[in-house]
Design a protein around this nucleic acid. Sequence first.
DNA 1: AATACGGGGCC
DNA 2: GGCCCAGTATT
Length: 349
Amino acid sequence: MIIADELINWYRNNGRDLPWRHTKDPYIIWLSEIILQQTRVEQGMPYFYRFVESYPNVKAFAEAGEGELLRLWQGLGYYSRVRNMHKAAKMVMSDFECVFPTQYEEVIKLSGVGEYTAAAISSFSINEKKAVLDGNVFRVLSRYFGIDTPINSTSGKKQFLALANEVISDSHPGLYNQAIMDFGATVCKPKAPDCENCVLSLDCVALKNGLVANLPVKIKGKSSRNRYFHYFVVEKEGAYLFAKRGENDVWANMYEFPLIETQQEVSLEELKEQDEYKVYFGDVEIEEIGEPIKHILSHQNIYARFYRVVDEQNNIEKKPSWNYYNSDNLDKLAKHKLIFSFINKYFMN
DNA sequence: AATACGGGGCC
DNA sequence: GGCCCAGTATT
């Protein structure tokens, strides 16, 4: 296929020099690929260095503590990725004789490794001929071939995967996979693609028909819901009260200040009328710290307020799951963005 | 087939 | 405010 040769040729001259491209080690490739899921290269880069240094091989990763891993992942988002990585690393030790697998059919068995990541690892490490299908590939192929099937529909995924596997280079599948993704990221971009300097422009159906801005087609998702969080900052002798979040909500198992959630925006007076509030804080003095913070996630808008609780008489009814941590211990807890940015703003000196 | 799951950059 | 990013697991 001509398109594959063009892309590889373009890539040899214009590809980005990224650290994970200097290795065939499936473990290192896996590390980079999981980090880069739904994450821009610049955002994931520091985390990649951090993890390679802390855990140079799969054995070290498998032997790490869950909390330690989560702490290192802190701030990157989609935290189930690192939990699945831990599972996967342990699977490598137990089911793959401590050797990180390279074949598509083997790596896809690992937790957190789906079709994309399995194709990436197998093609980059041993040149297995499996086409990657990520956001970049969807975009390049949909524009070049002028395909308007929604990329997030079941039939669309099937159609594009089949096409990607037709287009892939026979002789250099790994290089081709790198090339089409890099090309999508730097030339055939979502906004303002560089069609003037595009090596595929002659045969690009979208460009010919003025449809570049309309492709790829994507079905719109659900809109966000609003949530109202009230965090209570309780300090006692230099230690702070922290709670661990549950399993089945955003930021699973991460740490934060004790929280009361309400369905609507409520005033401080209304908050004090909540049963939950009465149980825990009764009539201790509280004062709001700073302004409310709007924290936006893909599928929810969180409006967070923080209150300082003065508990000189030791009147707080502490939940068993709440614990006090001094600043050293606090630093080791995996906290989500909303909490650690608050801490950095108000507590760091 | 649809939805949850983070955080950040860009327009 | 909406879209997108080297997607996957779950329902």
